[in-house]
Amino acid sequence: MRSLLCRIAAAIALVNGAAMIPAEAQEGTVPPAPNDLTAEIDPLDNPYHVDDGKVDRGTYNGYRRYHSSCHVCHGPDGLGSSFAPALVESLKSLDYVAFAEVVVNGRQAQGATGNSVMPSFAFDPNVMEYMNDIYGYLKARTDGALDRGRPQRLPK
């Protein structure tokens, strides 16, 4: 957990003008998360609890926050759109730290569709305060642990 906090702090520090980490250096194939219902939620090792379609509080909140701040570009349920990539594909190769780095710093890419620009959300409390939840939700979707649509909540 401490190392996680350090890594997030490092990602956030990048906002203040440091060079961006080259995306490819961060990306590889990310194995599915364990979904260990007995272990604490931890965005690095155990980002979500899903049991029979029901999710923990954070993953549910991630569903809501994603569909408020992210889906207007990335499409419903992380499936992508004509405007921005499907995050259920992106998170197959972006781990939590790489994900956080893009959310914090934004990203620009020149592609066949012209400039593709992800803004920095570093100053958006609706995203920064819930980044772990958003990641947990998208990771559950990416791993196939969670279907489309509104998840049900696990009892506390």
Partner: peptide, 8 residues
């Protein structure tokens, strides 16, 4: 954006 992936 809304319909590329289909609706639920």
């Amino acid at each position: 954006i809304g319909l590329a992936a289909g609706l639920t």
